[in-house]
Nucleic acid binder design. Structure first.
Lengths: 183, 183
DNA sequence: TATGACATGTAACTAGTTACATGATTCA
DNA sequence: TGAATCATGTAACTAGTTACATGTCATA
């Protein structure tokens, strides 16, 4: 009855920011780089979206400015309320999993482009997958994972990426052969 | 110089609608069902978004109303210009492939939820994948693919779904074991 | 006659993108 | 001193979601 609930929308970016800041405080600029690197295969954010979200999260007191540096740099850290919200999202909220796969959408309609273009596209998809696979393997080898479980979940995600790209490459090879059946 | 170019934004839904109508004319209601069925694992659209898009595509003369039925039903078909736009999208435009994977985003931050919840979540991901895998296999068996290449690209997409869900299931099993290492 | 499937639409919102705009600091 | 990097922000837009609103037709 008297409980006032601050409703936070179930959006990826918001919780991605909370998660990254939970891991380690940082500025908008820092986070942008972390999005490009660590989250590159998982979630995308533009600079403009990030700064907007940081503002909203600060207003909602889920994060706070912990220090200000040169060039107007503001370092944010997650608050107790933010940590609670992150936990709530992970525990209580059912993942949305809205499918939105442009690569496959194109495959579905490839008939309208002709066989040559279809093969070309599928070949390209395989190449992209292979390149990403190589990138992930290099990333894996470049990281000192240490002993314990410090990077446990990061490793799970990396392994997922590896399996995904391997799958995609294998499928693309097979698909190209399907479109070009020894005719 | 004098060339007037009708700029159509590079959005999934628009081209998904064109592709579906290229395949076979239909009403908004028809398309909504086709989105849920054929496109279920590839692209999501709400009813409201669909009708809006149909209106815009009609204004742009990429589709047209070919007949009106009972209950205000309007059947749309793709026009020559629409077919050309579909081809252009497939041939000229580079896929965006903006990553946005909520499942994996959660895995990345699972440390904030505790091991029990982590195992629970990963197990659930595996189960969802397995169920989808079964669904796709059933779908495959229920379809009369005929002889030739009529359903070539549809089969490629279905096979992708099968490989993807199999990968996800295998990964989830492995991941659960990683979080619960015989301690 | 009432239920369920068919069928279309609008309003208000949230999320995400693109382009612009500004300025500080470091270092070659 | 000029280029690269660091650093933040706004305005105008497009895309997508949720909730509402309306009405028809078949059939049990």
């Amino acid at each position: 009855m008297s409980r006032v609930e601050c409703r936070i929308s179930d959006v990826g970016l918001r919780h991605a920011v909370l998660g990254l800041l939970d891991d380690e405080p940082g500025s908008g600029y820092d986070l942008l780089k972390r999005f490009q690197q660590a989250m590159g295969n998982i979630w995308h954010a533009t600079q403009s979206q990030l700064y907007g979200e940081l503002g909203k999260l600060e207003t909602a007191e889920l994060i706070e400015v912990t220090s200000e540096g040169p060039r107007g740099r503001k370092e944010y850290a997650i608050t107790a309320a933010g940590r609670e919200e992150l936990r709530r999202w992970l525990v209580d909220e059912k993942p949305a999993m809205t499918p939105r796969n442009e690569s496959l959408l194109r495959v579905y309609f490839l008939g309208a482009a002709g066989r040559d273009r279809a093969r070309e596209y599928l070949t390209w998809l395989g190449e992209v997958a292979q390149a990403r696979e190589r990138g992930l393997t290099e990333l894996d080898e470049s990281i000192d994972w240490g002993e314990g479980d410090t990077y446990l979940y990061g490793r799970l995600v990396l392994e997922w990426g590896r399996r995904f790209t391997a799958m995609q490459r294998g499928w693309a090879d097979w698909a190209v052969a399907q479109v070009n059946p020894s005719v």
